[in-house]
Design a protein around this nucleic acid. Sequence first.
DNA 1: ATTCTGTTTTAGATCGTTCTAAATACGGGA
DNA 2: TCCCGTATTTAGAACGATCTAAAACAGAAT
Lengths: 335, 335
Amino acid sequence: MRQKRVTLEEIAQAAGVSRATVSLVVRKSPLVADHTRQRVERIMAEMDYVRDIGAARLRNNSSRTVGVIVPNLVNSFFTEFLSGVEDVMAQDDRVVLLANSRDDPWRQDEILQRFRGHGVDGVILCPAVGTEPQLSVRIAGWGMPLVQALREVGPPLDFAGADYVAAVGLAVRHLVEQGCSRLAFLSVTARTSAREERLAGFARALAETGITNAGIVEADLTWEGAAQSAAQILALGTRPDAVLCFNDVLAAGLMAGLRRAGCEPGRDMAVVGLDDLPLAELTYPALTSVAMDAPRIGRNAARLLARRLADPAAVPQRDIVAPRLVVRDSSFQKV
Amino acid sequence: MRQKRVTLEEIAQAAGVSRATVSLVVRKSPLVADHTRQRVERIMAEMDYVRDIGAARLRNNSSRTVGVIVPNLVNSFFTEFLSGVEDVMAQDDRVVLLANSRDDPWRQDEILQRFRGHGVDGVILCPAVGTEPQLSVRIAGWGMPLVQALREVGPPLDFAGADYVAAVGLAVRHLVEQGCSRLAFLSVTARTSAREERLAGFARALAETGITNAGIVEADLTWEGAAQSAAQILALGTRPDAVLCFNDVLAAGLMAGLRRAGCEPGRDMAVVGLDDLPLAELTYPALTSVAMDAPRIGRNAARLLARRLADPAAVPQRDIVAPRLVVRDSSFQKV
DNA sequence: ATTCTGTTTTAGATCGTTCTAAATACGGGA
DNA sequence: TCCCGTATTTAGAACGATCTAAAACAGAAT
């Protein structure tokens, strides 16, 4: 039995004022007299009035709703990111529409249309693999404020991410200090801006430190994928004494695979991850990683969007968080 | 520059029919003639029409929007659950409003009001610790369809969860088969229905197998909390040879704590978790756990809500998924 | 009293859709 | 030709808020 809503009209009736006045009270306008405001507020509380934001939006075009699209809800990096977004949005009394593109550009399009239909004020998007570069301008064409996060397509607009080039640099320098001299990189097959950035960081760090590139191996972005690539890594022309991984999930998988192949990570081979997910503490040996503070990136993205909503003409801004090296046990190498 | 929406009226104009007819086309009503439908559909596509769901809801009271409230976005059990919910909702062309109560009943109330204001069709709630038992009836009083998930307060209504009593039974029987004879339980301080259920399962399983209860220890629901409780467990009056943990996060933390105290899990002490999170594969030794299929619980919850929306008078239903034991290396015990 | 401020309040139109009830069109059969 | 039933279409009133422009109300100054 769907309840009927208490409306402004009814409150107005009960308070002996007009709908318009009650509306002003709801919106905390300074125009209404104190005694009126108090009376109306009391009555609203008594009658359990809940403002209909949908109806309001119809008139004034602000739904206090934002869409968030992530490519994945299993990788905890994205959920920590999401948690940061949700956090700031809740503080601003906004609500998050969540959707999972599963890294499928077609699904992503569907979701965007759905969001459009729901009248979101703006969108935070981590573009799916294979997203057309023009997507961000298409979205702009709809008049829908957009912030990209973690990955990026199209011309540089509002963006919240992390400095993976620097992150890779930190990791490589750490390994060099540990005495490693032949370094491999475990990358992923999926082509995203995040991947390009890490590869670029790898190339740059090799150049800067002069360490040997033992090779780049690609794996699927899963635990098993990484475990299977252990064999490839051990068979590389120049056998590496350290492996830097695209992220912690791959690093954890790789360590399992190496051990299965009789190569003990943290002793026979140094392994370093990226992201510093909570699981880094729980692997064995505990995983050395570079922390990216995903919740913070999420908060940044939310704030960027809030800024854009407040001032649609603002100049595009990029918020990049700095990485922090967290040394644990997997990066020692004692041959 | 916020774009103006293309409206029904404009489509109607362009197609030389009335607003009402276009509305019928949008809703795929069989009432309109085929040639009209086709013409209108073509024009809608040309003009990039997007139906305003908010406006529609205002009239017909269905927003195709559901709220989901979880107490936590870091524990991957909840995010996998969420992923299942989102999945089914997207299939039904519904959109998920996500919020995180952080296990705070007061925040949870705020969120519910916010959702109410946004006119959600219904809510999936995993109640925060300390939620008043009357909450579910209060929500019903608002005419807001509700499905509870994973945890439960108040009289039995629609609920999607897992059979933790059976899960604990599986784990205990497995440990007994391994030759364990003195069993401890690592529980949590937070008082939820999930906790009660697991404790009940523990008591029942002890009674059925006749194994010795070495004691129940409580920890905070974090990795560090569990690590610290290792000492307490080792100091128990009857020293246990196996520990069953509230969930995998605690189990992983406990294993780290035990090892730090010089007690090797999987050799000196059997450890079993619950939930079978992805991290269970990555701990060392790999964690024996009881899989609960969180995404499936999420899908169940979504379907329960869909059912309730379709038929508000349906008799309450409970969907409980059966547990599955996953044996890995942490449950062997070879003193 | 009247006029003039400035403060509060309000009627009525509006947002984009769906609903209701009624109008119109179309095809036969009488 | 006219009438009737079925198939299509439509005008106009909702839904619950906000906006605009103007009205009502004070109190002070003339």
